[in-house]
Design a protein around this nucleic acid. Structure first.
Lengths: 193, 193
DNA sequence: GGTAACATGTAAGCGGTTACATGATTAG
DNA sequence: CTAATCATGTAACCGCTTACATGTTACC
């Protein structure tokens, strides 16, 4: 039985359980989307249009179990892992394959070609890259409480994953700051001597 | 006139000119693919199936100029930027918009859920992440001579972009190594005391 | 009373990959 | 002689995003 990566994301978050309010393991599609935005967004994204059909498929395959749990008149369908679902998740985690890493960064791309434009434009590029990573950093710090909740439940890896994300963006901040200085020094060499 | 990001990648590499053998500015679709693999792969990828149709479109729009330049009986179609193409590239570079950054990393994803499995599996995950980035680092170092060629032509940003890529992967190597040690210490607490 | 958040879904489209097809040339 | 590289393309498919549709509840 072949599952898409998105399927495993859903299984994984159902296992982690609610990130913000610790009810029990059961979660809605909406909750999953919110959790992804809170903890995984830096390295993975998933849209509602993927989540809902995927949950249906997973239920048909017996990897998750859903039940209606409306709040008043507001529809709400919550899911939890079956033992088959947990097994599928663990099999995926242990699977011995080199995991795919894909980065698509328009900013780096523009920087690569920045010799075609004035240094001022390049500096702007570097600055906006830096600011983007600074924002990502505070987003990770903002998601830190969510990690703490996981940790309270005995899950230590959400915070560790956040650490890696933070290190990546810190590296970008440091390097772009350095390059900004370098390019600016070339722009105004009149000041030297 | 709206262009896709892939279109700008092609324009950008045509402007940079040949990365490995400095002929003149003209380049084939095949060359573009090779250059991307050599210098931009860490943060952007593009497949032949995108390049060839896009070159045709760009020629129709007058942003590139192509001519046949066969090597013996082997077909070869080389392109160079028109002044309109150069202008389009510069407009894009200077355009004031927050550039999109998208990361899709299965390894990080697995790590996020690693509490579901034995610590040994998590350590394996961390190790393969580290090795992946170590490989990326040597790929960047391997592409360094290509950057030097650009620099010889007066283009300084290819190397600078490489510096950022290297910093990112160095950060991953450092952080995963640290986490490996941390998890291993928890696995074998018997040794303590 | 209005806006934001909660909540679930569908349809269309597109950007991109995989696989295939074809053939020439060079290096070992 | 054969494998690798050079070189250009097409067709099919698919994962994913955007946009849309719909209604509820909480909060200011």
């Amino acid at each position: 039985m072949e599952l898409s990566t998105s399927a495993y994301v859903i299984l994984g978050f159902l296992r982690l359980g609610p990130i913000d309010e610790p009810r029990h393991g059961a979660r809605s599609g909406y909750d999953i989307k919110r959790s992804v935005d809170l903890t995984a967004r830096v390295f993975w994204n998933i849209s509602p249009a993927q989540i809902y059909p995927e949950l249906k498929k997973l239920e048909e395959e017996g990897l998750v179990r859903g039940r209606e749990e409306p709040h008043g008149k507001r529809a709400r369908r919550v899911f939890e892992l079956t033992s088959e679902g947990e097994a599928a998740l663990q099999e995926w985690l242990a699977r011995d394959e080199t995991a795919a890493l894909e980065i698509r960064d328009e900013a780096m791309l523009k920087l690569l070609f920045a010799d075609a434009v004035e240094p001022e434009v390049a500096i702007k590029l570097l600055r906006s890259m830096r600011e983007r990573s600074e924002q990502a950093l505070s987003a990770i710090v903002g998601g830190y409480p969510a990690g703490l909740i996981s940790e309270a439940k005995g899950d230590k890896f959400p915070i560790r994953t956040g650490l890696i994300g933070a290190a990546i963006h810190q590296a970008i901040v440091d390097t772009t700051r350095q390059l900004e200085a370098e390019v600016m020094a070339e722009t105004a060499p009149a000041k030297a001597k």
